[in-house]
Write a protein that binds this DNA or RNA. Structure first.
Lengths: 206, 206, 206, 206
DNA sequence: CATGAATGAGGCTTCATTCAT
DNA sequence: GATGAATGAAGCCTCATTCAT
């Protein structure tokens, strides 16, 4: 009755198990046997669904990107209010949802690293380029929206600000990863205050 | 009498050769034999100076951190003018000096990744924690300096802004790494304009 | 009622598919999956008819031997005329029928090789021993027949000549396998002329 | 003092060990570990001298061909007397020297098999083609020599006879491999008698 | 009977590290 | 000190075989 969904399910099971193990032990430190054990399948089964360790890693990456994108889109949709409020809410929501899965952050670092390694560079680099570009577009259009509403100064370069904000979020999580005492959420929130003030149009002084 | 310096020289030669190879091939993809060839020494010689591949990698990291710190300190020292000007100049100088050695950026990614791998986590994580902390202090004190001068609003949390800026610089380079068409220098410059505006004290209206 | 013949059919289908794949890829290079695909059945089905890859290979061998023997016997039956003519006709017929299935010759090489491998040695070696022995008998009796007719010299050792001829045919095909420009048929024909002259009784000189 | 010859020696040691193991267990049945043990070196050492199991196998083949060629050439050189005598002596010498290393014959069968397997086909097939061609030339020129001396009939096609003889020797050894009671040496000797009679010029009857 | 997804033993190969020279 | 040949532990991947459906 559910036969057809079996295969897909097992593929997902393996991907999620792999995500967990890769996040914990890193790419090089991960054994296919570990993933198999974590997924509750035999070693050989993994090769029924993926051609190589590297392919599996990339599949984890794709799964991860999709999940993250979905997350961002959901966050955006839920936003209301002024552009400033929406920007702050987005920042907050992203940082919080990431904090809840901070163990997954090491996966991101593995992905970065993969995109630097000669062997996997190509596919990862392209995917990151596109992912970042998409994300910048989303934030950029949010900022342009604020300009059109007269909330933000029109002379600001929305693309640059978007790129910087996207980067800031990444990098605050990175610092949070290194330092348990560092709080990315409140740091981001305070910084957003400054940025939004920097973006704000001069109050009309009639 | 010159013996000591000989030894030190060869150690440095190895470290810099290793830095190059690690940057090009990634940690896992690098063979000790590659490093030996690049350094123009025998494979065994490397083990005269380092206990293991991992130790050598960490030595590269330390060398890299020292070189980068020196760079930052030189940049800072050279700065003059208002806090805003110094902040902008710092941003510019950092981004430019990094752009000149973008091939080394993949090394940073390898270091990040190493700090996520169970095996090397501890030493790398601590070093990064301290490195980031130091860097944030530098930027933070620059901002506090601006507050004291009355340039920046006193209610701003200098630490948060410093953390965010440090992160932004990192992350813009990261985006530049992924996308050749992305220009971290001008993006940073434009963003700094917004941030500085956000930091600026209200103009006294007497 | 027809069930039995069904089963036999599928067994044959598998054997012939296997023959083709073994001939193309060699024993070690052949996957059970390849055979299943070639035969148009599921992998598991093969194990309904054969206990192991090796058993299947041996079944292919037996099928092959039977087919070849049938061929030889048919050739022999069809022969008429003097012993010399029959010998020449046999040689010709064998070489030609082999040339038409030269792709199957690599199967023979696989069988030879199997008889050298410790694992399969026993069954293959015995079968080859018996096969060659039978074939030598056939040729030998043809030669003895020529002696009785007074065509061939009586002091010739028919067994030795038979063994050598059987070997020559094999080995000319082998050389043809290695070299597309080598023509086993005409080479065999010319050589047979020499051999038959060597066998011939002195012409009665009255 | 003998340092330079070390490497070459070890390569040879490995090749000869490999020849022994391949002859005993077949290509597929041979483990690199077996060869290493037989050669008295570590498994890894083999990969210092050869890139893969297949390369090692081919190196064994080349070594084998060279050794065999040397053997044939030595046999030829040593020959004197009439063409018939030299042909008979060559046959005898080959068969005897092969009989002494019948365990190596399974190697030849492995080589044949390799030349049938899609994977190794090319290099083996070419080498065999050339090897057989060379060998045929040698025998052929021996026969032509007999024609020039007036020993053999001039209308005989020396190439065909050479090819057939070369093949016969191979194939008699093959039959000897299958059957311990089969004696390739005397079989060859008797057959050579017939062939030489077939080649012989008519005695001048003046 | 037929299937093909699942399995895991097994083997080739890599490469950090050692150590005799 | 310097070297690089030798090593063998370790891990990815293959594929014959099984068995639940």
């Amino acid at each position: 009755m559910q036969n057809k969904s079996w295969r897909k399910d097992k593929r997902s099971v393996i991907i999620e198990a792999a995500a967990h193990v890769f996040a914990t032990r890193g790419y090089a430190g991960t054994l296919i046997a570990d993933i198999a054990a974590e997924a509750g399948v035999g070693k050989g089964t993994i090769y029924e669904y993926f051609n190589s360790k590297e392919d599996l890693f990339f599949a984890v990456f794709e799964w991860f990107v999709r999940a993250t994108e979905a997350d961002v889109k959901v966050s955006i949709q839920a936003l209301g209010g002024s552009a400033s409020e929406r920007l702050e809410a987005l920042s907050d929501s992203l940082m919080k949802s990431w904090l809840q899965m901070m163990d997954m952050f090491s996966l991101v670092m593995e992905f970065w690293s993969a995109s630097a390694s000669a062997h996997m560079r190509d596919r990862f680099k392209r995917a990151f380029r596109e992912g970042y570009s998409d994300f910048r577009q989303i934030v950029s259009s949010l900022i342009r929206d604020g300009m059109q509403r007269g909330e933000f100064r029109p002379e600001v370069d929305s693309e640059s600000v978007a790129a910087a904000l996207v980067g800031t979020w990444d990098a605050l999580l990175l610092q949070g990863w290194f330092d348990d005492n560092f709080d990315p959420v409140s740091t981001a929130r305070r910084f957003m205050g400054v940025v939004i003030r920097g973006l704000a149009a001069e109050p009309e002084d009639t």
